[in-house]
């Protein structure tokens, strides 16, 4: 039997809502596993790429250097990269900090906020913590993205339609009812 094409998924600066929406395809996931094999993904906890993938599904934009690293790794290993959801496409809720200087954001979160309890009075600076970027970047401002699926999250039907179209070599044309930004 020919080996099945592989799909990888990741959540960058996202809330895992888009991954929940993938699972929301319900029993169609059984058809999906007939068509495709899940590779690196939080769904199966495979952490590194060991084979090239056909599709990479990206949730979330880039808010720190680790996100950029992961996104570039996906670009290198996936033939088709999909920005899945509004955060990947435009930064989403995390991008609301883009109007506030990073220093002010950190001071509010760790020093000045009314509910902050931080006896050390320090902003975390452990070298193990990924460095925050100056702002949150949509994925297509960091690497080339081949397809965009808007929505917060995109509905299970949207994700299903897109994956089936790609896997069966059909053009990805979403009907009106599946183009949603909310």
């Amino acid at each position: 039997m020919m080996s099945k094409p592989k799909i990888a998924t990741t959540s960058l600066a996202g809330c895992f809502g888009c991954h929940m929406s993938v699972l929301d395809i319900d029993d169609r996931i059984l058809q999906l596993v007939d068509l495709i094999e899940f590779h690196k993904s939080p769904i199966n906890d495979i952490k590194t790429f060991s084979a090239p993938c056909l599709v990479g599904l990206i949730e979330g934009g880039c808010c720190n250097e680790e996100n950029v690293h992961v996104l570039k790794d996906f670009r290198k290993n996936c033939q088709i990269l999909i920005s899945c959801g509004d955060c990947a496409i435009m930064g989403g809720i995390p991008a609301m900090r883009n109007n506030v200087p990073l220093k002010e954001c950190l001071e509010e979160a760790y020093l000045n906020g009314v509910t902050v309890h931080n006896p050390s009075k320090k902003i975390p600076a452990d070298p193990d913590l990924p460095l925050l970027l100056d702002r949150v970047y949509p994925c297509h401002e960091v690497v080339k993205i081949d397809y965009h699926l808007p929505g917060c999250p995109p509905s299970a039907d949207t994700i299903w339609e897109a994956l089936v179209a790609l896997l069966t070599d059909k053009p990805l044309e979403l009907p009106y009812s599946l183009i949603k930004y909310d």
Binding site: M90, N98, H140, I145, P150
Partner: peptide, 13 residues
């Protein structure tokens, strides 16, 4: 049928 803008976001204040 716009799925994503083709320009970079400006994130104005």
């Amino acid at each position: 049928g716009i799925l994503a803008p083709q320009h970079d976001y400006m994130f104005p204040c």
